[in-house]
Design a protein around this nucleic acid. Structure first.
Lengths: 128, 128, 128, 128
DNA sequence: GTGGTCTAGACCACC
DNA sequence: GTGGTCTAGACCACA
């Protein structure tokens, strides 16, 4: 299946985001060799040029590097990945907070909601 | 402005979601007359039928009602709207949590992050 | 509003049925003068010729008679009307029974259902 | 054969009713695969979209479910079907009673009529 | 002009 | 071929 894209943000930007998430989430481990541009493009159902552009950007950000002959690898710098992770998380938080405050929730309300979730997940079932 | 749609979920579903959000957020107040189907469709840049379908569904959910010739109105039942708001919030929370846990965060981490945000918003002193 | 017709049975037949029902139900009383063909046709939203045909048939059945100058009248023969009533009732019963047996109900079941209805209608409310 | 429709109620509503009746009556058995939307539409002589709408509604009511590629099936939940049957029967009874009382019959009269029918059906002796 | 219904025809994803 | 979605355009009843 080809991925799904929003038609308001450029596809290459969405690719960057998705690849970043996959690296941070460990789909592609630290130092791991990535599939070829052609394969990645095919998997995502986009033009190889578009995928190339995304990868170049990710390289510029330091999340991956390419060696002429051997291929393209995820960075071995865990701090780098950690930083990317934090950035992504912050983005999620920001988006989430915007949505929730737009719905009329205060941060304190939200924290309360999350604590509820935490208890829900902690113990399997306390009282039916 | 025509709205933007993801190409993985049906447009009518996205319309439902957006309209719901707008009602909950008070863009369309309780009991207020909504624009005509045709106008809403034009505004969203979709076919009137598609908008119609979304509105029909919202009507079925009780968030609005239509009067043959007079037009379509937001429900006057605040509880209804409140319930919709809660449902939307829960959806946001769920989505957020899966994204964050996918990134490797525990709920406790997330709560900590949010508390940080809270303090940031509270006072203007920043000690990055 | 113009009446509603099925598109499988001729309109004149449906007119006969409806007029018959109205006479039997007393909408047009025994011996009463009927509106003009033109008016009846307008009321039903059909061509006067079609209404004429229906009325002619009703005359043939003896439910009404016309006097050249004075107009058209419901029969004064109560037996006639009574018979028509029975015929209509029988038709209803037949249709009803077909539907219900088609649904898998036995006549005894149906009678039980109706007796329930009778009790329901009899007393306003016995127990909440 | 194309079906016949009344021109006062929307076709899709009539389709819902007819399909429901057929399921309840066992024309389409529990769990059975239904013809394709297109075939059903052709059989009924309506546009596939109209038939689709009816089926969607029936799905929502739980009387059938669809599998992306395999087709559409009658629910396997006999209780569901039983409930639908009762609802249809109640509707028939209500309609019948209003028609008959409109003709001037009391419920007791009607029950008497039905008992007559019962006896008629029981033994073949007729003493008209 | 409003909501609602219907048709015809197209496209998509899935297997 | 299946279900599902979307569009474009038409028509109706109502007021």
């Amino acid at each position: 299946m080809t991925w799904s894209f929003q038609n308001d943000t450029p596809i290459y930007a969405q690719l960057i985001h998705t690849m970043k998430q996959q690296i941070v989430a460990g789909v592609y481990a630290t130092g791991e060799k990535l599939p070829s541009v052609r394969d990645l493009a095919a998997e995502a159902g986009v033009n190889p040029n578009t995928m190339q552009r995304a990868l170049t950007e990710l390289e510029r950000e330091g999340l991956m590097y390419s060696q002429r002959t051997a291929g393209r690898f995820v960075t071995e710098d865990r701090n780098m990945i950690e930083a990317a992770k934090k950035a992504l998380a912050e983005e999620q938080v920001k988006r989430f907070l915007t949505a929730m405050t737009g719905l009329g929730y205060e941060i304190s309300d939200i924290i309360a909601l999350l604590e509820q979730e935490e208890n829900k997940g902690d113990v399997s079932c306390q009282q039916s």
